[in-house]
Nucleic acid binder design. Structure first.
Lengths: 179, 179
DNA sequence: TTGAGCATGTAACACGTTACATGATTTC
DNA sequence: GAAATCATGTAACGTGTTACATGCTCAA
């Protein structure tokens, strides 16, 4: 149920935000680690409200609803962070495909891996651009956001290096075919 | 629709396998990059058969059904590998939580990051054990499986290093509090 | 006054998880 | 003959995606 906690967490950190505000945060930064659609966000806000973890604190123009966490909501966020274990990542389509590269010509396989290296490089650049576009001040979400961003950069760099290494491996193999 | 292609790909690479055999492969290795449950696998086999991408080649004892890919199935796998782009990973609960570490005491945050480092270390060890337990011969899925396994090891090592770096960052900050 | 952006919500469908349900074969 | 393992399938429920649907407000 991570979407629930992503939404709850944002409302704890950004009190007075609306579904629309949340959506912008998902698009800009949080969505890199936990994607969410508009439907999901509004649906989860309704459920969290029904469960008493958040509440509408004011209603603005255009039907805007601003939310804040209740004490029960803050407890639930703390419980999630300190008493439960995160589920390890178990789906990566880019790596899944590697298992099946043996079914296509070796050139197609290296094409694929080079494309993956380029995609990782673009991902890295996007994160650097994001880093420069936000004027972080230390402490609060900004401080931890910076740590998450560093993770993203290391992730992209690792993927690029791995894909380049894999291309080299395949080239070595084709130069000296199996005994 | 990656599950579909994971199942199809396995049937191309391991002709004559059954749903039960596939399930063992998911548990042992493929599941690290694309998790699937028993229900999903049997359901997908039925759909792939209905769509003419695979077919039952023989029926064994205990109702065992062995599958092989049809030409249409092999085409579809190739099309997926060469003409579509993999969807980037966009859900990582372990990193999502980092965004909200500002809501708990700094000690809880370092506890969390240290636990993440330890989990990555265990993950790395598991992959090394897996590598040693399989007697790979070069070429075919084994060759590419080795490349995927190398990715897993680099991923786990990167995560451990990042989490350790993050703990150090937080300690530096607490030693010299913000100006 | 018109268009961009703010703002929310619902419905249909696809995908994933858990639990249930059943039975055949092999091994001890 | 009991237990382990092989082997398949379904039902209920939860989560996620896409598309539709609507309307307000502000600035140019």
């Amino acid at each position: 149920m991570s979407l629930r906690h992503a939404v709850l967490g944002l409302i704890v950190e950004v009190p007075g935000c609306s579904g629309y505000d949340l959506l912008k945060i998902f698009d800009l930064s949080l969505g890199h680690v936990w994607a969410a659609t508009q439907s999901q966000v509004y649906g989860e806000l309704a459920k969290l409200t029904a469960d008493g973890l958040i509440e509408v604190t004011s209603e603005g123009p255009r039907g805007r609803k601003e939310y804040a966490a209740t004490p029960a909501g803050r407890d639930e966020l703390r419980r999630w962070l300190t008493e439960t274990e995160p589920k390890p990542v178990s789906r990566d389509e880019g790596i899944l495909r590697v298992f099946f590269l043996g079914t296509v010509a070796a050139e197609r396989a290296t094409d694929y891996l080079r494309a993956q290296a380029a995609a990782a490089d673009r991902g890295h650049e996007e994160l650097v651009a994001l880093e420069n576009s936000l004027d972080w001040h230390r402490g609060g979400m900004a401080g931890y956001g910076h740590i998450a961003l560093e993770y993203g950069k290391r992730f992209m760099a690792m993927r690029r290096e791995w894909a380049e290494w894999a291309v080299e491996q395949l080239q070595e193999r084709s130069e000296q075919p199996p005994a």
